[in-house]
Design a protein around this nucleic acid. Structure first.
Lengths: 227, 227
DNA sequence: TTTATTATGTGACTTAGTTACTGAAGATCT
DNA sequence: AGATCTTCAGTAACTAAGTCACATAATAAA
């Protein structure tokens, strides 16, 4: 029996969790496991049941849909400070996954077992609030994605993604194929658009790399919905 | 104080709710209001806060995204026996709506106030289970929609929607514009595809109506992912 | 009936996705 | 090192889908 338990250090990475002081959450968070995963590690597959809640401390996990005929599209990224909304939904309902997740970098994550997750959900008002608000933002992000996929011009979507990525490293380490999966389009389409960007002098292309030269021009492309 | 309350009759329309016997749910369900709405009544708009939980008894409500430049796409339909997953997410997190909802027929619905919803959520295991599983199916439906919008050929998506609609009435009462909103495409695209279907002898077109002649042919179009 | 509104048809054009290749860069093998 | 393999990128030709600018037809309103 641990009488005077403290909140573990990893919770500091989650602004919305670190204010929780319930004894239940204290117990559950202390029972969580921290795991380290190399790049390209599958986290879950469609059809699998969900046994753990997941919080990302470092790195990035790609959550995507894959169709029968091999088309892929990224739904969202699990990134530091965030959870996986599809996992949350699965745990809440006890159903199984309907998407794929794979690490795109080395990842450090917190694992909370289904049982402990349920205890925290039932016993901690703060944790429940956290889960509810992440469910809400997950739903709204998916709805927004539907809208973007349906109506967003490809050049703007590509530019936006490059701008998001360049915040980490400037020559962005990625292939045209990876960019295509990100946007749910074909590799050839990405290649064509990138060449166009390169001719404008906005980017410089090398094998496995996209270097952003004119951030500002990419921004105006994104902003101007009708140029 | 009502000591021997019974579950109200409308609950029978919801298979997943009618087995719940908690006193809390009994109380909440008895306090629900039943409302009747004419066709084309807005239920909520983006930016509004969410004050009531909604269950549909009869009719259909369209939930859709509308972009700045006027493009529209249907996310899902609230139909008899179902709730509105975006409303649920809003209530859970206390945030506001990020989509639009409007009745597409006359609608009879059950309204549960935010306060009563929260009481049922906290006090009734059965109701909580119902909410959790509807959140999960809502998320997965949205994720599947992303996939369909990204990769589904338009003719197949149109055929599928006609097949869904024809279950109600055979000459389907709809306009090409409405079909376009349903699929998130342009009216002209729908007009062209419908003309093609008509030339094949699969449908008969009249102003404001699509009559399905060859259900089987539309089915094979949908099934054969690569014809 | 005249006029206005809503629904549909169509051609010309742009953007996006597919098919079928090509060659080039890096990795692996001997 | 040189030969080979694998992955990545480029491109042309075609089909599908979305946009723009209309014309025409059916219904509703004045």
């Amino acid at each position: 029996m641990r009488e005077f338990q403290t909140i573990p250090a990893w919770v500091a990475s989650f602004p919305a969790l670190k204010t929780i002081t319930d004894p239940v959450w204290c117990e559950v968070s202390n029972n969580a496991r921290i795991i380290n995963l190399p790049v390209n590690t599958p986290i879950f597959h469609a059809g699998e049941s969900c046994e753990n809640y997941l919080l990302v401390l470092a790195g990035s996990v790609n959550v995507q849909k894959v169709t029968e005929d091999g088309h892929e599209i990224t739904l969202y990224h699990m990134q530091p400070g965030h959870s996986c909304e599809l996992t949350t939904a699965c745990l809440l309902s006890g159903s199984c996954y309907h998407a794929e997740a794979i690490t795109t970098t080395a990842v450090q994550a917190v694992l909370i077992s289904k049982k402990e997750f349920m205890q925290a959900l039932n016993g901690s008002d703060g944790f429940r609030k956290f889960i509810y608000s992440s469910i809400d933002s997950g739903m709204n992000e998916l709805a927004t994605l539907v809208e973007e996929v349906a109506f967003g011009p490809m050049d703007q979507r590509l530019a936006q993604h490059l701008l998001d990525s360049v915040l980490c490293t400037n020559p962005i380490k990625t292939t045209h194929y990876d960019l295509a999966v990100e946007l749910g389009t074909a590799r050839e389409v990405v290649s064509r658009l990138l060449k166009k960007f390169e001719h404008q002098g906005w980017v410089k292309l090398r094998r496995g790399e996209v270097e952003i030269i004119e951030k500002g021009e990419l921004c105006t492309l994104v902003k101007h919905h009708a140029p």
